[in-house]
Design a binder for these strands. Sequence first.
DNA 1: TACTATTTGTTCGTATGTATA
DNA 2: GTATACATACGAACAAATAGT
Lengths: 136, 136
Amino acid sequence: MSIDRRSHTPVYRQMANLIRERIYSGEYPADAPLPSEATLSQEHGVGRDAVRQALALLRAEGLVTTERGERSRVRAALNRAAVELPPGGTAIARMPHDPERVDRDLDEGVPVIEVRHPDGTTEVYPADRTELIRPA
Amino acid sequence: MSIDRRSHTPVYRQMANLIRERIYSGEYPADAPLPSEATLSQEHGVGRDAVRQALALLRAEGLVTTERGERSRVRAALNRAAVELPPGGTAIARMPHDPERVDRDLDEGVPVIEVRHPDGTTEVYPADRTELIRPA
DNA sequence: TACTATTTGTTCGTATGTATA
DNA sequence: GTATACATACGAACAAATAGT
């Protein structure tokens, strides 16, 4: 797969698709660093900007994490315990808003599960990706 | 000569021109270390990035060499013997590709001369800069 | 030998300008 | 007018190699 300049799909989305496929295929294994933005930029003949926008999409999907000064990494799969629901309780999955995400020290792309008990109290759990499976 | 912020010539190219002139003028003599990147950056009021890009241009031209942990140096002029061409032989000057350059242990910016003999054999010589002369 | 300072290498964050669709 | 795309530019932080004490 490579970048199609004539496609109407923006370059940065094509880049995201390309990197995502390499993650799902195992070419970029979990916890491994991706090539640097500059390397990806050169190898695929696109601007650094397009690479950065692609990585932003993958971060939002929870597939990669990025820290300043380090190459982006494939998010390691975590095995989290299921949330036990109390009788009459409800659970809602949502994305945290940005200050909340920072406050809870969560990576981008990590949804939270908000458990509401019958007595009105609520608890919030991060819902990390549990497996590396291509969404249907 | 100094950096013109209003010029359409990129800052890093202006920096390369500036340093190149100082090399040709003898202000930075052969084999002498240039000022550090940080010094050049501060003295000319440009970012370290611009300095590094300028040095990359000069390396590609074969004017300077850079080693990690040391300041860049003006490439010493070497007096290499002329290549003797056999009757019917041909010679081609070209830049080595990157793995070849590493393999032959050559600095950046050093072309090679490929001598082809009538019998089909070839020899390759590095073609170091022999004099410090402003190209016409 | 060991420690420290200097220096280049790498990398991401951010901003600006320009061009194009 | 907006979104996309690229090049340029600066900053910050850290790693790694070298040199001097």
